[in-house]
Amino acid sequence: MGERQRTDGISTRRRGATLENAITDAAWEVLVEQGYHGFTYEVVATRAGTSKPVLYRRWPQREDLLVATLARHWRPLDVPPDTGSLRQDALALLRTINAERSRAVVLLRIQLADYFRETGTTFDDLRGRLRPADQTPPFAALVERAVERGELADEPRSARLVNLPFDLLRHDMLMRMGAVPDEAIVEIVDTVWLPLLGLSPHGTRAKR
């Protein structure tokens, strides 16, 4: 099923993915500008140049529309290419997050505050819905890679330890309301994470 939209006097029909992408693009703009409080079917439909029934047919609940919007604009992080070193892999991943996600992390924490209050959920709950069920978290993938190289011992490690670099970076982003200095990224890896994993900043196993 499609719908007609007039552009410069020409009637065009948008269907399927084209229509849904136009709606979720408009919904993202509304979320960024007005937060979840202003994220209504009426406002999104007007911005997308469509009608509320078109939105309701695809997303019966406002939360459904929100998740679809975030899934389109908040894509999972890719694991960086193998550098041959856990330290360099971790630095590359953190620098990518810092460059590409800092504004969005802060923005969504603020703009989704009403959503979290209304649903009684957390940012971690939402991230779990957006991440594919079969996807290994990026830092877990880096640790697995390091184990395969023989850089780390093959032993149990808690998710909190494995994901600590991202958690610390996210905390700094929120405290600074934006990207963090590169020296902070290096400090997270060299003075916090690697020692907890039993490695020195040079990638060798630390003496115990």
Rank of each mutant, 00 (worst) to 15 (best):
E3C: 03
L55V: 08
T121P: 00
R14P: 03
E144A: 14
A141Q: 03
T69G: 12
A22V: 10
A206N: 10
A90L: 09
T18K: 13
V106Y: 00
T83C: 06
H171M: 11
Y41G: 11
A27D: 06
D82R: 01
L174I: 14
L94K: 07
V79E: 03
P195G: 10
G35F: 08
P201Y: 03
P132K: 06
P195M: 05
A27T: 08
W74F: 12
D89S: 07
D64F: 11
A71T: 02
R95E: 07
F39V: 12
L70K: 02
W193C: 00
D64M: 08
G203R: 01
A141T: 13
A184P: 04
L86Y: 01
M177R: 14
R170F: 09
V54D: 01
T136W: 05
E155W: 02
R145P: 08
L174C: 12
L142P: 09
T121K: 07
A48H: 09
V67F: 08
D124L: 06
N21H: 11
S11V: 13
R87V: 00
S158E: 05
A26P: 03
D154I: 01
L86P: 00
E155S: 04
E151A: 07
V147E: 11
V44K: 01
W74P: 00
L108S: 03
R131C: 09
E63H: 15
R95F: 01
T40M: 06
F166L: 14
V186L: 09
R6K: 09
D114E: 15
I97K: 13
F116L: 12
L70A: 00
D64W: 11
T69E: 00
Q5P: 00
D167F: 12
W59Q: 10
V105M: 08
Q135M: 12
R127K: 12
T122M: 03
E187I: 03
D167E: 15
Q61C: 08
T7G: 05
Y56S: 14
D114S: 07
R95P: 02
G198C: 01
I97A: 15
L196F: 09
T40S: 14
Q61R: 15
D89E: 03
P80C: 10
T50C: 15
R87Y: 01
Q88G: 01
R170M: 06
F166E: 15
S200D: 14
P53V: 10
T83E: 06
N21M: 10
D167R: 15
L66V: 06
T40H: 04
M177A: 14
S102W: 12
W59I: 01
G9T: 05
I110H: 14
R58M: 02
R95Y: 08
L31Q: 06
A104T: 14
T96A: 11
R13W: 08
A141P: 03
T46W: 04
A184G: 07
R109V: 05
N21A: 12
P165K: 00
L169H: 05
E20W: 06
A153S: 06
R127Y: 10
R58W: 03
D64E: 10
T191Y: 04
N98R: 10
V54T: 15
F123H: 14
R131T: 15
A22Y: 06
L196C: 05
P132H: 04
Q135L: 14
Q111V: 08
R103T: 15
L65D: 04
V180S: 12
P156G: 09
M175T: 15
K207D: 13
V30R: 11
L66E: 09
A113W: 11
I23V: 15
R62N: 00
D154K: 12
V147H: 01
H37P: 02
T24M: 04
A146C: 10
P195D: 09
